[in-house]
Simulated assay, not measured.
Amino acid sequence: MQINLPDKLYYSIGEVARAFDVNASLIRFWEKEFDIIQPKKNKKGNRLFTPTDIKNLKIIYHLVKERGYTLEGARIALEEDQNLEDEIELVFRLEKIKAEILSLKSYFDDVED
């Protein structure tokens, strides 16, 4: 999964939900289930997610959606594995490289035809 968000200080819940291709309600649910996600709230009560929140959401998304962990299993993994953040960041970088390679392959396949 590739997360495409511009570099900003804060992201709205809509931006975050679109980036992860999930419903905003799932982001709110994960916020309640995982205390490492702590968006700020403006005067209207709208959630404003920081880049740190996005990084933590990437980890949770990877554990729950890609590895198939239960919420409890993801919580335990977050508590026990200190290198988890680095591992998941590496997975995201590798997926990005894979997508670029596949794009190049497709381009050259089209050029040959």
Rank of each mutant, 00 (worst) to 15 (best):
A19D: 09
Y61S: 13
V64N: 09
D110P: 00
I76M: 02
K96H: 13
G68R: 03
V22H: 02
D113C: 10
F108E: 08
A24G: 10
Y107Q: 14
N83C: 02
Y11M: 13
L48Q: 15
I37N: 02
R67I: 12
D21F: 04
I13L: 04
P51T: 09
V22G: 00
I60M: 06
D7G: 08
E79Q: 11
P51L: 11
T70I: 07
S25W: 00
D113P: 01
L48V: 08
N56Y: 11
T50Q: 06
L84W: 06
L94M: 13
F49W: 08
F49M: 09
L104N: 07
D109E: 15
Q38S: 14
V22I: 07
E87F: 07
L104Y: 13
P39D: 11
E87R: 10
Y107R: 08
E15D: 13
G73H: 01
A74S: 01
D109W: 00
K65Y: 07
K40T: 11
V91C: 01
N23W: 01
L48E: 11
I59W: 00
I97Y: 06
I88D: 00
Q82S: 10
K8Q: 15
L57K: 03
K8I: 11
K43M: 14
F92C: 01
L5A: 07
A24C: 10
E33A: 05
I76F: 05
G14E: 10
Q82L: 02
R67Q: 11
I60W: 01
S25A: 12
